[in-house]
Design a protein around this nucleic acid. Sequence first.
DNA 1: ATAATTAAGGACAAAAATATCCTTAATTAT
DNA 2: ATAATTAAGGATATTTTTGTCCTTAATTAT
Lengths: 161, 161
Amino acid sequence: MFSKATEYALRATIHIAKNSSENNKLGLAVIAAAIDSPQSFTAKILQLLTRNNKVISSVRGPNGGFYITKKARKLPVRAILEAMHEDKVLEKCVLGLAECSESQPCPMHSQYKQIKHQLINLFENKTIEYLAEEMTEGITFINNKSKKIKVKIEKPGAKKS
Amino acid sequence: MFSKATEYALRATIHIAKNSSENNKLGLAVIAAAIDSPQSFTAKILQLLTRNNKVISSVRGPNGGFYITKKARKLPVRAILEAMHEDKVLEKCVLGLAECSESQPCPMHSQYKQIKHQLINLFENKTIEYLAEEMTEGITFINNKSKKIKVKIEKPGAKKS
DNA sequence: ATAATTAAGGACAAAAATATCCTTAATTAT
DNA sequence: ATAATTAAGGATATTTTTGTCCTTAATTAT
């Protein structure tokens, strides 16, 4: 659906929103590790997020790093897509037609348009804050590390406890 | 949402389904022109569609070309995605997490999963034939050529008829 | 002031996606 | 049989995406 860059952007922003504040910034290395993304590439992405749209903020120097303002927390998730110049995917025709519209619909248009509306709604109505809160509840995850599950290995023939 | 290759594949298949039959095949040049795609690249895509999944069929030589069998018409649109090896996008986590699931959901999971289900339904329940019929009705389009609208240019000052 | 730390940004590298070209193979028409 | 037509497929080129590395700039701590 989205490019890797945008996936990293979404994960990074959510992570920052959950774990940072103006007086508790997160360094690049910490962020990249937390969201399981290549560090240098993530640096570029964070630059886009700080510049284009002010989704996240940054300061250099010791104790510097990335954080997100209270105001930016209220931004719709779509703002992240915009900063990554990838928000048109939401409106795009499934068949890639430039001219696809209500008056000149592609064969999938009428079926897809409802899905498209929900997608747009999701990204426009949910805020960055909202997603971060979902995480804070401790019910959602944001990395690719599979949880290590302890498995009790029993010797064949051993009595079950 | 999909790669260009897959967009072309969808458009090509629908066009072939609408305009071909076993005794009325379509040549590459005709197809590429109709769906507004680069000809040589489209050739590669048609190869994938004929080989991998037998979505479309082909014969070489004079009066040869591409067509689709009655059986293949009944295939779900998803078969096209499969032939292009791009069907996982339907199931993929929005944040690109490999481990995202019901038991370990990402922050967007619960919101997105309903949309995902509808997407999967669309591609699994609608057949190639169905989309082609939508076109045959003459209500949908499949190319990027904007309709030329005849505009009457009047000389300034000329009397309106 | 100086050194240490951290993001910003430029240059470059690698990989993947998109696209073209040319030769070969199959089929048909003559 | 031969020539003409059309898809198949290999090789290669171009562009975009993904990724790394190194230097510079800003900020802080000493």
